[in-house]
Amino acid sequence: MNIFSDYHMHPQGHRLQPYGRALLEPWSDAARKKGIREFAITDHDRYHAGVDFDSFREWRDRNEDLTIRMGIELDNDPQNSEVGLAWVQRNWEKLDFVLGSVHFLGDWPFDRAGEDVGFSRRPIEEIYREYADALRKLVERGWIDCLAHLDLIKIFGFRPKAGFLGYFEEVLLLARERDLALEISTAGWRKPVGEAYPDEEIIRRAREMGIPITLASDAHSPFQIGEDYERLSLLLKRLGIGEVALFEGHKRKIVPLAAAERL
């Protein structure tokens, strides 16, 4: 299976860096080497000050053999999310793709290194319910095209003993109602949980609902572009997924992976 797209990348990493040739060119070079022919850059909205649309267009035009989309990851950061949302609203027409994600429960950045201790402070079921509620609020707020790493809350391997899917059922229903896509991300394979996002049970349920799928590595360096795509290919085959969602100007098209050689 030829997986040719990666719709979750962070050229800025986790710090504010201005867009320019020095920052962006290594990403197109690495994508080309990995056989990734269409990708979206999706830096966190808290670093939007580094996003320069003119620099992006110049970079895209220098790499005409690749399809490069302009995106952003909009999350629920309690300090920055309202400013980030306002930036997305102002620049909606300049963006191709907006990911939505939950990285905070209140002021707790639960997925950061060293934050696993927080999972022992209250029942895991309560944490999952709060996480699912935060996801619903994110979807209801709008201004997103796709949900990123839907079950990120499992990052350190903590999960309820029973009824895992039940925490995400309402979120999936709401995503279908809002016509959102769902990301399958290889990033979980390099995290303590050691499995892709989201859980296979969630993916199967999303497919039953007709929710389209994007593919992603959540790369924070060029070396992570397309990481673990061999394992992803096996996962897609096992789940019977043979098509991928692509975006341009927030308009979605579905492309069979079998057609990748003709793109």
Rank of each mutant, 00 (worst) to 15 (best):
S120P: 00
H103Q: 11
D179E: 15
I225T: 04
D29G: 05
G210M: 09
L74E: 09
V171T: 15
R136Q: 10
H10W: 11
R141N: 03
G142H: 03
D107E: 15
P26H: 05
L165T: 10
G242F: 13
I184Q: 05
L257R: 07
I225F: 06
A40D: 00
D54A: 12
E200T: 13
L174K: 00
S233P: 01
V98T: 12
H149D: 08
D29K: 13
V139K: 00
L165A: 12
V244A: 08
R207S: 10
G20N: 14
F119N: 08
S120V: 07
I184T: 04
L23G: 09
P198T: 08
W59P: 03
F56I: 03
A132R: 00
D54T: 13
H44D: 05
D107W: 08
C146K: 00
E25L: 11
C146Y: 02
L235D: 09
G71A: 06
E183Q: 03
L135W: 04
I254Q: 11
L99C: 10
L66E: 10
H220Y: 03
E169G: 00
D111P: 11
F56R: 05
D54R: 10
L135V: 03
D107L: 06
K161F: 06
Q89H: 07
D218V: 01
A86P: 01
L174W: 00
P109L: 11
D54S: 11
R15L: 09
S5N: 03
W143V: 01
T67G: 02
E248K: 15
V83M: 08
P18T: 10
T214L: 03
H220D: 01
R112W: 14
I127Y: 06
R252H: 10
G71S: 08
F4R: 00
N91M: 06
R129C: 05
Q12P: 04
L172M: 08
E93P: 02
H44N: 07
T42P: 07
E130Y: 00
E140I: 10
V255I: 15
L135Q: 07
T214S: 05
L23P: 11
A22W: 05
G114I: 09
F168Q: 04
P123T: 12
A206H: 01
A175N: 04
L138Q: 13
A30F: 06
L232R: 01
R231M: 07
K94W: 08
P123S: 15
Y47W: 14
R262M: 13
V83R: 15
